Simulated scan of single mutants.
Amino acid sequence: MRVLVTGATGQLGRDTAERFAASGHEVVAAGRRELDVAHRDQVLGIVGSVSPDVVVNCAAFTAVDACEAEVDRAYQVNALAVRHVAEAARRFGAHLCHVSTDYVFAGDKGGPYHEWDQPDPQSVYGATKLAGEQEAGEEATVVRTSWLCGRHGSNMVTTVLRLASEDGSMRFVDDQRGSPSFTADVAAVIERLCTDRRPGLYHVTNQGEASWYEFARDIMAAAGHDPDRVAPITTADLQPPRAAARPANSVLENRALALAGLDRPPDYRAPLSRLVADLLG
């Protein structure tokens, strides 16, 4: 296939482009410099010239706290831009895969969220990403993922490894739980869903769950550091306070993948060990 990946300079975009290329597909990787998805004419022009079989939209405004202040920009990039990409995909006969987030949920459920749970975003970021899901359309593949980490860019793993190289203790919240997910594993599922041109909503995360505090301890242990350097705090203790509300529980059950008989990404601890070894090697 010929695959156009938007947001291709981000950590998931880069690994998604690499995954398709490694499988022998022709890949056009477009970062914001090559394609600003907020501009309809650009989107139509590039999709028309590339004529892809699949468009994977990884482009997003992901600065969660900044979205609270830059509401128009958040809607423009996370919602209206998806309308442009979906229009272009329909016009030129491409299958669209759009990437979304755990922030579409309120975070007050007692267990993991599955694909048929009702969204209730509590932040501008979550609201705009939910709007983007709606703009993608019924024929698109929508992939919700969470707590992404990978070889490229800044993420929880790179942050903890940086702090581990410095003196002193670290504090991470213990009252937010989620599904740590690794870009290489998510990209592999995206490739499968796009190859099959499967429409609909899929939660795609690594299996297992943790709080940020527990995840930080796992990272420390994987790197050979003392996990006891990590101390738990509550979200209310964060200084300065965060502008955007975070879901207390954003664990995503991969129910649609399981029911469809598709492989789910493995438990997060194995890819965590591989990523830490890669980053430290």
Score class of each variant (00 low, 15 high):
78 N>S: 03
175 D>Q: 04
223 A>H: 10
263 D>A: 14
50 V>D: 04
258 A>L: 11
56 V>A: 03
63 A>E: 14
225 H>A: 12
83 R>P: 08
56 V>L: 04
44 L>I: 06
76 Q>K: 14
44 L>D: 05
122 Q>G: 02
66 A>L: 10
150 G>E: 00
41 D>R: 15
277 A>W: 13
186 V>F: 01
15 D>F: 08
154 S>L: 14
266 P>W: 11
96 L>N: 05
219 I>M: 02
153 G>M: 01
78 N>C: 01
132 G>R: 00
192 R>M: 12
117 D>C: 13
17 A>H: 03
50 V>R: 08
192 R>C: 11
168 G>R: 09
200 G>M: 02
68 E>L: 09
140 A>M: 00
133 E>S: 07
202 Y>C: 07
11 Q>A: 13
170 M>F: 12
183 T>F: 03
181 S>A: 05
123 S>T: 01
196 D>E: 15
93 G>W: 03
209 E>F: 11
98 H>I: 02
5 V>S: 09
82 V>G: 01
249 N>E: 05
272 L>R: 04
115 E>Y: 01
189 V>S: 07
134 Q>G: 12
176 Q>S: 14
269 R>E: 14
183 T>Y: 00
69 A>S: 13
16 T>V: 15
105 F>N: 03
182 F>A: 09
201 L>Y: 09
78 N>D: 07
233 I>C: 12
171 R>V: 08
132 G>V: 00
18 E>N: 12
138 E>K: 10
77 V>N: 07
234 T>S: 15
137 G>P: 00
130 L>K: 01
31 G>I: 06
220 M>K: 06
37 V>E: 12
170 M>N: 03
12 L>M: 02
120 D>A: 14
267 D>V: 14
40 R>W: 01
246 R>A: 10
206 N>E: 09
123 S>F: 04
190 I>L: 04
113 Y>D: 04
260 A>T: 04
279 L>M: 07
34 E>P: 12
127 A>H: 10
79 A>D: 09
49 S>H: 14
37 V>A: 06
139 E>P: 01
55 V>F: 00
156 M>Q: 12
191 E>L: 14
232 P>V: 11
209 E>N: 12
229 R>T: 05
217 R>L: 08
112 P>R: 09
63 A>I: 03
55 V>M: 07
139 E>G: 14
96 L>T: 05
234 T>W: 13
61 F>N: 08
12 L>S: 04
23 S>F: 13
